[in-house]
């Protein structure tokens, strides 16, 4: 047993972190929220060059995957930088199409791997009734029971609590596949989505903690750094505890998924609820300890704060995840 990141995992994370840190990711997120997808799509292409999307696509379709562990490490970095767009939905849709083969894998998966196709996915039995960023996607897949459709379009954008997340109901469409294998594949895809969302949450929470610690160390009141106050310290300590114990659940779940373990759905659910709650708590801490300036939209911190709760609930609410953990 060696339950630690391998050198390649650390290198993958470092590469993505470096790319996203120097790419004005907050600017792309703000443009995305305003309906301007160009900077976000440019960022998407650069991410694809690092191979992130290929991790979700198997070799016959010009990918390198599926590699859930590497996907988890990557999505921690996407969350750390609050990358805009349906990144989770794209890799989940890729998992779905891969399982169903004839339904469109050959048409879409090579383009996903290359970063040329942005996909959205709506599966009301596993998530909400909306497709994320349908207006930016090249295809919107919809799973209803045992029917897979390619939507014709989407309804008007329903603003989310996180303005960077643009939700819409998918409309109409043509049937791509039908049968029990569709429902099974959707269950698998939802697991991939939950794992990737958990990873995003962990990264988001770590970034919120980092930014808050930096602020707390330089902000002075009463003549001293407010980071010297025990009430402040203990809140940040609890934030770190919660995030650090979500981390091994995430990687354990990714290993279970990679191994095709029967326990994978339970382990993914455990990771999802724990990372989601930890990031949400980190957002509350970040806001409280920044004080009034944290309550402003101008500060980029708002991009992270506002994403925490929607990610906590996407692809498995806390209650749904907890129920799944106890399901035998």
């Amino acid at each position: 047993m060696r339950f630690l990141p391998d050198a390649e995992h650390r290198e993958l994370a470092r590469t993505l972190d470096g790319l996203l840190a120097s790419a004005d990711t907050p600017g792309a997120a703000r443009a995305w929220a305003a309906g301007d997808h160009a900077p976000g799509r440019a960022l998407w292409s650069r991410l694809a060059e690092t191979g992130v999307f290929a991790l979700a696509v198997p070799e016959p379709y010009e990918g390198m995957g599926p590699l859930p562990v590497e996907l988890a490490f990557s999505f921690v970095e996407l969350g750390r930088h609050a990358v805009p767009g349906p990144v989770v939905e794209t890799v989940a849709a890729a998992a779905l199409l891969d399982r169903l083969g004839d339904a469109g894998a050959a048409a879409w998966l090579p383009r996903v791997a290359a970063g040329k196709a942005v996909l959205s996915l709506c599966a009301p039995e596993h998530g909400g009734p909306y497709a994320l960023d349908a207006d930016a996607a090249d295809a919107v897949l919809v799973v209803d029971g045992d029917v897979l459709r390619l939507a014709e379009g989407a309804g008007p954008v329903q603003p989310s609590a996180d303005p960077v997340r643009r939700l819409a109901r998918p409309l109409g469409g043509t049937v791509l596949a039908r049968g029990p294998e569709v429902a099974r594949a959707a269950g698998h895809a939802a697991g991939v989505a939950a794992l990737a969302t958990a990873a995003q949450s962990l990264g988001l929470g770590l970034a919120l903690l980092d930014r808050t610690v930096s602020y707390i160390r330089q902000r002075t009141q009463f003549g001293v750094a407010i980071g010297s106050f025990q009430a402040v310290k203990h809140r940040l300590a609890d934030t770190l505890v919660a995030l650090e114990f979500a981390r091994p659940l995430l990687y354990g779940a990714a290993l279970a998924l990679a191994a095709g373990s029967d326990a994978a759905p339970r382990e993914i659910a455990a990771a999802k609820v724990t990372a989601g709650e930890a990031a949400h708590a980190a957002a509350r801490t970040a806001l409280q300890l920044h004080g009034a300036v944290g309550y402003t939209a101008e500060l980029d911190l708002s991009l992270w704060i506002r994403k925490a709760r929607p990610l906590r609930d996407a692809w498995g609410t806390p209650a749904a995840c907890r129920a799944r953990v106890l399901a035998s």
């Binding site: 114990f245 091994p248 209650a319």
Partner: peptide, 21 residues
Amino acid sequence: LRDRVADAVIGARAYRLHTWA
């Protein structure tokens, strides 16, 4: 109550994996 039972199961699992790391 079910959620709290689940949290205890998850917490024990998290502690186990964290310790292995």
